[in-house]
Structure formats: C-alpha cells, structure tokens
Design a binder for these strands. Structure first.
Lengths: 206, 206, 206, 206
DNA sequence: GATTAATCGAGACGGTACGTCAAGTCTTGAT
DNA sequence: ATCAAGACTTGACGTACCGTCTCGATTAATC
C-alpha cells in the first residue's frame, strides 16, 4: 500500500538530505494554484503547464512532487478537506443530518464538485490514483460515517442489524448521482428526507 | 432542445434528401466498432482513428456524423440500451426489484460500466454532450422508474406522499456511487436491501 | 500524344451520342469561374469545390470534363490566350519587340502570372499535365517566335547562324525568372534592352 | 525585415539563454533528412511526418523550429548553397562562364532542381516564405554576379553602360525558364553561347 | 411513346496530410 | 539535489482538399 500512496515524492533512494533541499513553500503555492485553476476550468481543462505558470514555478518542480496531474489534483483536494469532525448532536438522527449536510456543502460549495468528474475518469484508468483518492479522501469520510452510525447502534437508537455500509451508501450515493450523472440540483430537503428514509427502516423500536 | 441534440449530424438546412445519402450501414459499422473498442480499452484510450480503422471507414466519415469523440460514444451507448421494458410483476416491490436488477446488469455486464467514468468527465466539460446523454439515456430510464413508482401509488401499494424522484435516486444513486467513486463491488443483496428500505418508509398502510 | 492531351474528356467508349448530352454552356461557366477564382486566390488556394460553387455546378460536372484540378486550370488559361497573331512590323527588330511586349502583357496583366507558380509545381509532379501545358500554351508561343526569327533570317536581317531556340529563351527566360523567382518587377525598358542585346550579336552585317 | 526572416524560430522574447537549449544536432539531422527526402520525392510529396520519422525526431520538434513545411524546405536548401566563391579566372568572360556553369550545376546536380517547382508555388502564396527564399538564396547569388560583372567594368573589359541586373537576368533567366517551364534540357554549350551574347553587346571596345 | 443511357446537383466517401495540443521526461546553467 | 526555463517524445486531436461514387431527377436520342 505504501507504494501506492501519493504523498510527496521523496528524492532518489540514496540518502534523504543531500543536495539542495526542496523549497517547502512551493508545495503550498502549487497546491493553491491548482485549486484556483480547478475551480475555474475543471479538471479536464486544467493543464500542468498553466498551474506552473500561475504558481511561478517550473513544470519539473511539480512533477518532482507528484507523479501525475491527477495526483497533484487529489492532493490539492485533500488540503480542502477540513479535518472532518464527527458531529456530536446527541442523537443519531441529528448526527446523520449533520454529516449529510456537510457532504452537500463539500460537493456544492468547494471545488470538489468541479473536480470530481475528471477524477472519476482518471481513477477508472489509473488504479494507483484510484487508491490514493480512496485512501485519502473517501476512506476517512466513510470512517466518520461508520463511527456515527455505530454510535447510534451502541446508544440503542438504531437496530443492531443496521448495515453500516449500506446506510452510508444510501445517504451519500444519491448526492454523487445527481452531481455526476443527472446534473439535477440537490433538493433543499434532501438531508431530511434521506435521513427519514433510513430511520424509518433502522430506528430501534426500543 | 433540438440544437442540443447530438443524434447524427444532418446535412445543411436546405432540404433533407439531396445529394448522396449517408450510407446507413456505416452508422452501424462505426457504432459497432466503437462499442467493441470501448469494452476493450475504455473511454480514455479509445481513439477515433482506431475506430475508423476497425470500421473500415475514414476519419472524416466519422466526424461527419459526430462532432467529437464523446458524442460518438454517447450515441454508441444509446444503441446498447434495450428499449427498457417496464416490468410487470404485479407488485410495486417486484417491479422495483426488477428495475434495480436491470440497472445492476447494465452497469456491470455491458460496456456501460467501462464507459461511464470517461463520459462523466466529458459531460462536466461539455454541456451539449451532457444534455445529449441525459436526454437519450438518463431521461428514458428515469421515466421507466417514475411510471413504475406511480403505478404503485395508483394501486395503493405506496403512500400518496411518495416522492418519485427521491425514491429513484435512492435506489439508483448508490449503484453509481459504488461504480464511480468507491470502486467497491455491489453487494449481491443490494436490490433487496434497497427496495426494503424504500418500502419501509413508503409502503401504504392500506 | 493524343492520350496525353487534356481537351474535354469524352463519354465512355461505346458510342458517342447516347444519353443526355453535356450542357456545353457549363464548359464556359466553369472555365470562367476558374479564371475568376484564379486571379483572386492563385492556384494553390483554388479549390475545385469553390469553383463548382461559384459556377453553380457540381463537382462531378467538373471532373467529368477535366481529370484534375491542374488540367482544368490549364484549359482555363488556354481560353485566355488570344490566338497569338504573328506581328508584322516589317522588321525583325520590330517583330521581336512586339512579341516581347505581348509576353510581358500576358504575364503581368492576365491571371497567367498568378497561376503559373502553382502550375509549375504540378507540372513537376505530373508529366501528363506538363505535356498538356507545353503542348497547348508553350509550344504555340514558341512557334510564333520561331516563325518570326526565321523570317528575320530569311529576309537577311539576322545572320544565318542564329540559334532560334536560344534567342527565344534569351528573350523570354528573364521574364519568367523575374516572375517566378526574384519577384522583381520587370524593367519598363526590358523589351528594348533585350532585343538590342540579341541584335548586337545576331544582326546580319549585310 | 527581421520579422520576415524565417531562420530558426527563437524562444519568447525574455532572454536568449534560459531553459534547455535546442539541441543543435537536431537542426542538422532534420535538415539532412529534409534534403534527402526532397531529392527522392520532390517538394509536393515530402511530408513533415516522414521527415520526422527519418530524422528520428518528433513532429513538434520540427514545428518548433519552422512554422511550416515550406520554411523548413527553404532552410534546407540554404544549407546546400556552398558559400559561393567568386571565381577568379582573370577575365570577365572567364568569370561569367564559371558562374554560369556553377548555376547549371546547382540546378541540375543538386536537389535544388527537384525542389524549386514546389517552392515557387508556395512562394507565390506566402510572402514571408518568398522573402526568406529571396533573402537567403537569391540575393547572395545575385551579389556574386554583380560583383563579378562590376569587376569586369572596373577592369575595362565591359562597357561602363553595362546594366548589371539585366546581364544577370539574361544569363540566369533562361536556365530557370528551361527548368521550370519548357522542361527542355539545357544545351551543353549554353554557357558559352550566353556569355558570347552578352559580350557581343557589352564588351568594351578598349 | 417507351426505353435507355449519360447528364445534372448535392454531398458522402476513402485517403492523406496538415498543424496543434497536452502529458510527462530530460537538459542546461545557476544556486 | 534543487530551481526556472523550455526542449523533447509520444500520441491523439480535429480539419482540409483531393478525386471518386451514389442518389434521385432530368433530358435527349433511339427504338
């Protein structure tokens, strides 16, 4: 797995600290330029050369850090993810509502929405990238949801037969479907309706 | 709407039957070659030149019909959609189960699954293409689902407050989410679990 | 030689006058459009499709008459050549002066000048065309010059050792050189200077 | 004038020695492949892709240096021009004879003859190219002739009213005329006959 | 008068080359 | 080993023009 990760490439295998050290400021400048460009033109029309131009940096400086355009973009996205706090509203319903709302926000208010389509295409052709994206972005999100759902079960609010991954997919899936496929806007009451749906089935009688 | 459609470009606006007509056989040969290549190499690695070579056709013959690679591919996908039959199992539960199973089949057994990621990326960058795909593929599918759900309401199996589009998204969304984002295989009991979920909320008491 | 000629193609080999006869008016319309377009855009940028459009004629109607663009153009040029009259000024000097002046006029006042460069290129690659051009345009011109020079010899104005072809080349060559290669304008006194040059060498002492 | 020149395109206007320098070896490899191909197939049938293939170079590497095929070809021709030595035979007659012979050699023994027709066509359609060709190839040649003729005047071998450009055209023009237009071979005694002609008129009595 | 065959305009067809673009790697000289 | 700059290969893109072929609709000469 570690070889699949995309976290900044390190210099060749000899030692780690010979020669001129990388300018750490460049990482941020590059990622910033990437986010900006991404939200302007989307993934497909983003070119590495243009990122370099805007960052005032050379192309090799970028490729020294990320093996491909897609990995640069994933990393840029990661910096946009707020260290997702598990919500603590006191009830499973409230927590799920909060998480769903957070996800809607991320998909519609951040560049993530513009980026996702292009990334989806690359992921289908590049397993390494897919792995990076899933490890760095999807998995942490899933874990948050799982923790929340399991807390609900533990507290006796959700039935013990609750299928954690299924619930997660049931709440998040339609959002991605609208974003990527139908292009329809997300209904303003989506979060409520969807959480209601889940609770109608999995709310513990006790 | 008509200007957004991509169905084969037609000759200039004078009349419609002047000059040598397009060879309709070529349409089929080209679309067939496209489907074949698509299922072999996926969207991103499909090249128009290779489609031409396999179809025994010139590149201009292709570009005469479709303005871009992406539109050719959409059209090819359309030919793969079987005039979706509304299922008639006699119960809303059975019908929804059948539709969900059909969709799973289309996404996993046909080239659609291989093609979708690339198409999603292009759609995000090309509104005309997005419109075409939605009009030709998504909307007919949605209509089928809507008809089925509404039939359930009419027969008194589903409550009258059933949100048709929400239900549709709830059943189909997670499938696309798995296919495009998480890459996880679809659980073998997905159809049952998902339909159960919906019925737990929308089954009519009567 | 006859098979190298480009004079209008005739219908297939059976008989000569079955079926609908060609519209003879079209020949003229096409040649006219060719001349016009030629003088506007030159040879290389002239397309057969545009000639057809302007002539209100179809492409096959053109290719039925001329096998290639280049032959159409040659034929169009021929129609521009005035049945060159041998001048009759009474003296060899006067006749040569007149011929040279005529040639200057043809090269600078008619589309010939715009056409020649492109034709030269095609001729180098297409012997059939070269033959047509030389037979239909160059040879008649050469004959005129030869007759004139020989008349001068006969009348005793030019020495009997006059090399007819050499003289012809000496007078005409520099004109083509300027037109095709150097691009320099032809000196206004070229005709006089050149004829003087020739007479200085070949004027008969007698 | 400088903006009309085609000599290898240079990088953007900042400085001149930043970034990876062009591999000068490639210039030579490309020009060499161009010359070879040119003498095999002539101008019209030379394709940039084939030049690239033979030179073991990519197409963009070529287009980085020359904006169009025609400019590549001109540049290739320039490399074939031997830094023309002004002949020093001691007499104007001998010098002119030598120059004429040199020109005959260049037109018949080098690829120049095969290339010229195609180039002539492009020049007529592309003033920049025409300018380049004339500046780089024609003008240096003309200067050589002018110097020679003027030396003859200075030495008293040619009359002081000798029209330098006219003489030059009179000697060179017929050669191009034969090559490009009539297709007739150049007479073996052309050089002598032509120089005789000129001397008959311009030889100084003194 | 019916038949026959080549014509007509329109435009599709195969072929071939064009010139462009972006991705990712390599090279230079300098720090 | 880094940096900026930009050359480099690779591979595909979409376009243009050539000369041919096909369609349905005339148009004459022949039968």
């Amino acid at each position: 797995m570690s070889e699949n990760m995309l976290a900044p490439r390190r210099p060749g295998g000899h030692g780690f600290d010979r020669g001129r050290p990388r300018d750490p400021a460049l990482d941020q400048v590059i990622l910033g330029a990437t986010i900006d460009l991404l939200s302007e033109v989307g993934y497909l029309r983003l070119t590495v050369a243009e990122v370099a131009r805007r960052a005032g940096v050379s192309k090799p400086a970028i490729y020294r850090r990320w093996a491909q355009k897609s990995q640069l973009v994933v990393e840029a996205m990661v910096t946009q993810m707020h260290a997702g706090q598990g919500p603590e509203t006191g009830s499973a319903a409230g927590d799920l509502l909060a998480l769903t709302g957070q996800l809607i926000g991320a998909l519609t208010m951040t560049p993530l929405g513009r980026v996702l389509p292009g990334l989806v295409a690359e992921m289908a052709a590049d397993p390494v990238l897919a792995n990076s994206y899933r490890t760095l972005i999807i998995r942490p999100m899933q874990q948050l949801w799982r923790d929340t759902i399991e807390a609900g079960v533990t507290r006796g609010e959700l039935t013990t037969d609750t299928d954690v991954d299924f619930v997660l997919n049931a709440l998040a899936g339609p959002l991605y479907f609208s974003l990527l496929i139908t292009g329809e806007p997300i209904a303003p009451d989506y979060a409520h309706t969807a959480v209601d749906l889940v609770l109608a089935r999995y709310r513990s009688a006790g």
